[in-house]
């Protein structure tokens, strides 16, 4: 946890720009960086009971098999990324710990576990205009009928790849690659211009 103090978030270069952007406040649209979350990429055969069993034992959650998110009681969640790929998120454990635990549990099963915590950052988007802001650069249909709370999927926002998580009504998370974070954030602020300025 002492690392927390010296870790640097991907948006460090535009901190002040971000703070100054919300002239009207975040009533209609809010954007907060949730940096330093743990992210671990997990690959394996979803049809292997041994694989699923081992993972579910460690994470205390059921791996999703469609474009959804599952969560454990302890704040760990699994995001479906592809037919044999999940992104494990946690605010509790560190990446190396989680990586080690999963690798140990999966010994003997064909799998891949990779700590990518520093490779991604998370934007939390809130407000009644979130969907409109995302629609400026993302071709997904995010209507709640189509993409209800608990859903996740990948797409692009302008030219940055994104993973969109629908956390709660009018609350979304975008998982963005670190090196695209500043670009994606500036594009989001630009898209939200009419709602925050």
């Amino acid at each position: 946890m002492s690392d927390q103090l010296i870790q640097e978030a991907p948006l460090v270069g535009i901190k002040s720009k971000l703070a100054a952007a919300f002239v009207k406040g975040p009533k209609d649209f809010g954007l907060v960086e949730r940096a330093f979350m743990t992210h671990v990429t997990l690959r394996g055969d979803p049809d292997s009971p041994a694989f699923r069993g081992a993972v579910e034992e460690v994470l205390q959650l059921a791996l999703p098999s469609g474009q959804t998110i599952t969560a454990s009681a302890s704040g760990c969640s699994a995001v479906w990324m592809g037919p044999d790929e999940w992104l494990i998120q946690s605010v509790e454990e560190t990446g190396p710990e989680l990586e080690r635990a999963l690798r140990q549990a999966l010994a003997g099963e064909h799998h891949a576990v990779v700590d990518v915590s520093s490779g991604y950052t998370v934007f939390e988007l809130s407000g009644r205009r979130v969907r409109e802001v995302l629609a400026k650069g993302c071709p997904l249909d995010l209507h709640p009928k189509v993409f209800p709370v608990g859903c996740s999927t990948q797409s692009h926002f302008f030219k940055a790849g994104i993973t969109v998580l629908h956390i709660a009504e009018e609350l979304y998370q975008l998982v963005v690659r670190r090196s695209f974070a500043e670009y994606a954030c500036l594009m989001l602020l630009d898209a939200a211009d009419e709602f925050i300025r």
């Binding site: 990324m81 592809g82 037919p83 790929e85 999927t153 990948q154 797409s155 692009h156 790849g161």
Partner: peptide, 8 residues
């Protein structure tokens, strides 16, 4: 290739 999606 679903490049900006599930990468399959």
């Amino acid at each position: 290739f679903h490049a900006s999606g599930c990468r399959r």
